[in-house]
Design a protein around this nucleic acid. Structure first.
Lengths: 111, 111
DNA sequence: TCCTATGCCTAGACAATCAATGTATATCTC
DNA sequence: GAGATATACATTGATTGTCTAGGCATAGGA
């Protein structure tokens, strides 16, 4: 289990979009969600996650709104825009082709 | 088909080690080999490939020797060291775990 | 009171990509 | 012999993204 440093770099944005689409709509929840969905395999550092969210918002893939939380500080909730949804689909596809090819070259079982 | 920019970043070193292990023992051949093995999906730019080879050599994962070519300029042939072989195995494993998790989260078929 | 969990954010150090360019030889075509 | 193309290695400067480390802030439990 671990810290897949550079591997995460290319997939982080897709994973974040996906997590939001799955209902983890704010930063802290996205990090928890990815950690849980991956059984601890993916650890999202704040220094990458928050800049990524800002990037995605600036690119028009996400829209944000602040909302109070029952505990702790207010949360910044994100949702996919139409463009974001399109990008997620495209990135899913790109990842699919990429991982298939790498799996084949590295001789890794895709079980 | 295309240019998997950031995705390649985390897998390039593994792919290079693998290509060398498969017999593409010098830079130009490695690039051609990966392009062919991936049916054009992976395009290795020289500005990433050569620095990567130097990195791997400096880390003791590769050993290099110059050799004349029947055509064009001399070639710098690489081969895996023992350490390089160990790293390749470890990186293959890391990639396997990572891609499995991402595939699952993105809902991508691993066919 | 202090620690932990929740929650957002950023600055500076660092690392790696890419486009572009340079160098060099051999071969093929016009 | 002029020019294009394939082979072959290498570097530079701009850009971009990660990570460590810290800051700010509220709430609950020990």
């Amino acid at each position: 289990m671990g810290n897949h440093g550079d591997l995460l770099r290319g997939a982080l944005e897709s994973l974040v979009l996906e997590a939001i689409d799955k209902g983890a709509t704010y930063g802290y929840a996205i990090a928890r969600s990815l950690e849980e969905l991956s059984q601890g395999e993916l650890v999202t550092k704040e220094g990458s996650l928050y800049p990524a969210l800002h990037r995605l918002e600036k690119q028009g893939l996400l829209k944000a709104r602040w909302q109070d939380s029952p505990q702790g500080r207010p949360r910044k909730h994100y949702q996919l825009t139409g463009l974001g949804r399109k990008h997620l689909a495209a990135q899913r596809d790109a990842w699919s082709r990429f991982s298939r090819v790498v799996n084949r070259i590295l001789g890794v079982d895709h079980a």
